[in-house]
């Protein structure tokens, strides 16, 4: 069986997309896991999107904890003889998968952007060296655990007529000497850079927080409204919340248009936006590496170039 698990609904569907294809190739079955107290309709939906069996693992745990979740998944993997385990790659999934792998003494690869069968061997690809290369890796273990980032695969078409089995079962994982005290939502401006079609992004070239206004005007003109940023703007200066942060340790984006203003283009930033369809760079240093990763570049001071571009786009739109 191929087991898929994610605590994120969209990501679950994307995992089903890939999982179903792999299963069909080798006439295997797909088992989707929901941990927590989900109902029949949620399970039925996963079946409509390609699962053969859905296990609802009921627990009395209030919050995610990798230790207990790994125990639960280990029980399910053993019970249903799962060989391939695909886990959604958010921060929880990324700490769950390797813990599970060590507990089961099996192989694990995180953040797989490609998964295929080469002969008998499950082969995956992941980005390494801060985005400078793609590493192709093959499993040599009987059980293979992988995590899959959001948007790596398409959800399969929904088929309401599909049937499958729903199993509800309660699990009592071991208890561990750690506990969740509280969960605090972080303030965010409802931004979702990962789904944005147009992103105007800023870096250290910006002199003060208020100047983000210039970029917002450009973004609004483009009817994009989405502002992104490099790591220092969110992590060090905290001018924008972390949901704007793009790059290796931030969000990965694929907009139609990405405009980088005052961003030098270090490899860790490029790793988050290189899949954009069109990249525009505005930087006053003609030697800045961002220009090597851009389709169009303007060498100049963003404080004059950005307003001029906003004006030019308004004129272009009304002409």
């Amino acid at each position: 069986m191929i087991l898929i698990y994610s605590d994120n609904k969209n990501n679950s569907l994307e995992l089903l997309g890939k999982g179903r294809k792999l299963a069909d190739q080798v006439k295997n079955r797909v088992l989707a896991v929901i941990i927590g107290n989900a109902g029949e309709p949620e399970a039925k939906e996963l079946i409509a999107f390609g699962a053969d069996t859905v296990v609802i693992a009921e627990t009395d745990m209030e919050h995610f904890k990798a230790e207990e979740y790994a125990d639960i998944l280990q029980s399910i993997i053993n019970e249903y003889n799962c060989e391939t385990v695909m886990i959604g790659s958010n921060k929880n999934g990324k700490e769950l998968a390797p813990r599970l792998a060590a507990r089961m003494e099996t192989g694990c690869v995180t953040d797989c952007i490609n998964v295929s069968l080469e002969g008998e061997k499950l082969t995956v690809e992941r980005i390494v060296f801060s985005g400078a290369a793609i590493s192709r890796q093959q499993f040599a273990s009987d059980i293979q655990i992988l995590t899959i980032p959001p948007k790596a695969f398409y959800p399969p078409p929904k088929d309401e007529a599909r049937t499958g089995e729903v199993i509800k079962k309660s699990y009592q994982p071991n208890s561990y000497a750690s506990k969740v005290l509280r969960v605090q939502e972080m303030k965010s401006g409802d931004v979702n850079v990962e789904d944005a079609e147009i992103i105007v992004s800023c870096g250290r070239g910006l002199k003060k927080k208020e100047d983000i206004r210039l970029l917002e005007e450009l973004a609004e003109t483009l009817r994009g409204n989405t502002i992104g940023c490099s790591r220092p703007i969110a992590a060090d200066l905290k001018w924008l919340s972390e949901d704007h942060w793009i790059g290796l340790s931030g969000h990965k984006v694929k907009p139609k248009l990405y405009i980088a203003c005052g961003i030098s283009g270090q490899i860790q930033h490029i790793a988050g936006m290189r899949d954009s369809a069109i990249i525009v760079a505005i930087n006053r240093d003609s030697e800045a590496p961002i220009f090597k990763s851009a389709d169009y570049g303007i060498v100049g001071d963003l404080y004059t170039v950005v307003p001029a571009l906003t004006k030019a786009i308004k004129e272009e739109m009304s002409s």
Binding site: G107, I134, F139, A140, Y296
Partner: peptide
């Protein structure tokens, strides 16, 4: 013995137009 083996390191396609407007 390794449970995962690296079978290749590939470059990342980075075709960009690189047009600088002057």
């Amino acid at each position: 013995s390794p449970k995962v083996e690296v079978v290749g390191i590939d470059g990342v396609p980075t075709e960009r137009k690189n047009i600088i407007l002057e």
